[in-house]
Computed example of a mutant assay.
Amino acid sequence: MKKILIISDTHMPKKGKMFPDPLLKVLKKDIDYIFHAGDWTAQSVYEELKTYAPLFGVKGNIDKEDWSHTLPEKVLVTIEDVKIAMIHGHQGKGRSTPERAYRGCEGDSADLIIFGHSHIPFHERKGSTILFNPGSPTDKRRQKQFSYGIAVIDQSKITLDHHYFS
């Protein structure tokens, strides 16, 4: 069994100087992996997250600093026979962020597509693929609460949950 923290759109330090307490509590627990779906803004966010668990991340549309050029546009990872694709969600064609994320990973045969960009939590199945946006733990924009996601993969079964806080 593997437990994964899923975050996106941290926009730090502009939208927060440090990770909020609810997120820090999760980071200090039994997390096997961290997935960040882009818009980190600062390399310090990347450096801090990788001290907690193995980190997978993609470049977001506002990641412009030199360090961010080392980040891929898309990540493909298999964990316990579950194929995960991650993309920020601003690339490509489509009327909505979920549609752009799906189209951006359509040929990857992913069981789970993680994306960000909109700051809007999203969890929906499209055929045999699950689309998941964790929202943002630091920049809720027009959402009522901040959010992040937790995925548990156990023997090829995925359980996904949003966690909300004020």
Results as ranks from 00 to 15, higher is better:
H69G: 04
G16W: 08
L24W: 11
H123E: 12
G57Y: 11
E48V: 13
D108P: 00
E47R: 13
A151M: 15
I150M: 09
D111M: 02
F146N: 12
K59S: 05
Y148G: 04
L55E: 10
K74A: 12
Q143A: 09
P121H: 14
Q145T: 13
H90L: 06
K64D: 03
D111G: 05
L71P: 01
D108I: 07
H69S: 15
S96I: 05
H117N: 11
G107I: 06
V26S: 09
Y52Q: 02
M12H: 04
L55S: 08
K126Y: 14
L55V: 10
L131R: 02
A53H: 09
T51V: 06
K126I: 15
K59N: 05
H90P: 01
I34Q: 09
T41W: 15
I79E: 05
D21Y: 15
L24M: 15
L160I: 14
T70I: 12
I130R: 07
G16N: 02
D139T: 00
M86A: 11
Y102R: 00
D154V: 11
S156N: 15
H69C: 04
A101P: 02
D161G: 10
K14N: 09
S68M: 05
S68F: 08
H88Q: 06
T138A: 00
I7L: 12
I150S: 07
M18E: 15
L71R: 03
R95M: 11
T159E: 14
Y148R: 06
K15P: 01
H11Y: 08
R142I: 12
Y46V: 04
S8F: 10
P137K: 01
G57H: 08
L55T: 11
S147L: 10
L112C: 06
H123R: 12
D161C: 12
E106R: 12
Y52V: 04
V58T: 04
D139L: 04
Y33T: 09
S166C: 11
S118G: 07
K157L: 13
F35Y: 13
P72I: 01
I153T: 02
K29M: 08
V58W: 06
G149F: 10
I6R: 02
A42V: 09
